[in-house]
C-alpha cells in the first residue's frame, strides 16, 4: 500500500517536471537560437575579417585587429561621442517629467487626459513622427523656421540639415518622444509614497519645497534610478530616429553606434568588423548594468 502511494507521488513529481520543461521550452528555445547563440557568434566573429557574401572559406582570423581598427576609425569614435552626448537627454527628460508628474498627480483636473496627451508621441510610430518633424524642421519652408523668421530671427538654423544643429534637433525629438513614458513611471512612483509622511511634515510646518526635497525626492529615488539606468541604456540602442531622419549625416555629425553597426554590417558587408562594434555595444550595456548593481545600494534611499 505504502509503496504504491510513494510511486504515485514520485510519478506526480516526474510528470510536473516534464510539464514544466514543456511549458518553458518554446521561450527557452527561442532565446537560445535568437539571442544566446547569436551573441556568442558575435563574439567569435568579432575576431575575424570576413564578408559573409564571400562564403565561409573567406573567413580570416584577425585576432584583436578589429578592435584596434575601431579605436582609429574616426566615424566610430564620432558615433561613440554622439552616444555619450545623447545621454544628456536622459536627465533633461527626467527633470521635466518629474515636474509635470507632480503637477498632474496633485494639482490639476482631468489627470487622465493629460497622461494620454503626453503619452501620444511614445506610442506613435517613430517613422511617422520622424516624417512630421522632418517637414516641421524644413530649413526654408518649415513652420518652425517660418515662425522664427516672423519673430525677427533672420538666419534661423537649418536644424536637421545643419552640422551643428542636427544632433541637438534629434535630442529634442527624443525628449519629446520619451517624456510621456517618464511621466507615467514617475506618477506611479509618486502614488506609492505614503500620505501620512506629508501630513506629518505639514504638522511640523514644512512648506511645499521642503516637502518636495525631503519627502518626495528621497521616496521616489528608486524610480529615478530606474529611469536613469534604463534611459542611459536606451540611448545606446537608439537607431530608428537616426536612420529615418539623418542617416548619420550631415558629415557623420549624428551617427551613433547602432547606426555604424547597421551600416557596416548591411551596407558595407563587413561582417567581422560590424561584430566587433556589436561587442563594444554589448560591453557598454554590461558595464552600465554592473555599475547599476554597485551603485544601487549607495544611492537609493527606501
Amino acid at each position: 500500500m505504502k509503496r504504491t502511494k510513494n510511486s504515485v507521488r514520485l510519478s506526480m513529481v516526474a510528470r510536473e517536471r516534464i510539464a514544466g520543461y514543456l511549458f518553458v521550452a518554446p521561450l527557452m528555445l527561442g532565446l537560445l537560437v535568437l539571442t544566446l547563440i547569436p551573441v556568442i557568434g558575435s563574439l567569435l566573429l568579432s575576431f575575424t575579417n570576413w564578408n559573409f557574401v564571400a562564403g565561409m572559406g573567406a573567413m580570416k582570423f584577425a585576432g584583436f585587429d578589429n578592435f584596434v581598427r575601431l579605436v582609429h576609425d574616426s566615424a566610430f569614435v564620432k558615433s561613440l561621442v554622439n552616444n555619450l552626448i545623447f545621454i544628456i537627454t536622459v536627465p533633461i527628460t527626467m527633470i521635466i517629467a518629474l515636474v509635470l508628474a507632480v503637477l498632474i498627480d496633485k494639482h490639476v483636473y482631468m489627470k487622465d487626459a493629460f497622461k494620454v496627451i503626453y503619452f501620444l508621441p511614445y506610442i506613435s510610430s517613430i517613422v511617422a513622427v520622424a516624417m512630421v518633424w522632418q517637414v516641421l524642421f524644413h530649413p526654408s519652408l518649415g513652420p518652425v523656421n517660418k515662425t522664427l523668421m516672423s519673430l525677427g530671427i533672420d538666419n534661423p538654423p537649418k536644424w536637421l540639415a545643419d552640422i551643428d544643429f542636427a544632433l541637438p534637433s534629434l535630442m529634442m525629438i527624443q525628449v519629446w518622444i520619451l517624456l510621456g513614458y517618464n511621466i507615467i513611471i514617475y506618477i506611479a512612483g509618486l502614488q506609492s509614497i505614503p500620505k501620512d509622511l506629508y501630513e506629518a511634515a505639514e504638522i511640523d510646518g514644512a512648506n511645499a519645497w521642503v516637502k518636495f526635497r525631503s519627502i518626495t525626492l528621497p521616496c521616489i529615488s528608486p524610480t529615478t534610478f530606474f529611469l536613469l539606468v534604463t534611459g542611459i541604456i536606451g540611448t545606446f540602442k537608439i537607431f530608428d530616429l537616426i536612420q529615418v531622419l539623418t542617416q548619420g549625416g550631415p558629415a557623420n555629425s549624428t551617427t551613433v553606434i547602432v547606426y555604424e553597426l547597421y551600416d557596416t554590417a548591411f551596407n558595407q558587408l563587413k561582417t567581422g568588423y560590424a561584430s566587433s562594434m556589436a561587442m563594444i555595444l554589448f560591453l557598454i550595456c554590461l558595464l552600465i548594468t554592473g555599475a547599476q548593481m554597485l551603485a544601487q545600494k549607495k544611492w537609493v534611499n527606501y
Binding site: L34, V39, G41, L45, K237, A265, A278, T289
Partner: peptide
C-alpha cells in the same frame, strides 16, 4: 535581458 538586441543582429541575419 541585458543583451542589447543589436548585439545579436549580425549572427541572426546569417542564421
Amino acid at each position: 535581458y541585458m543583451v542589447p538586441p543589436q548585439a545579436s543582429l549580425v549572427p541572426q541575419f546569417l542564421l
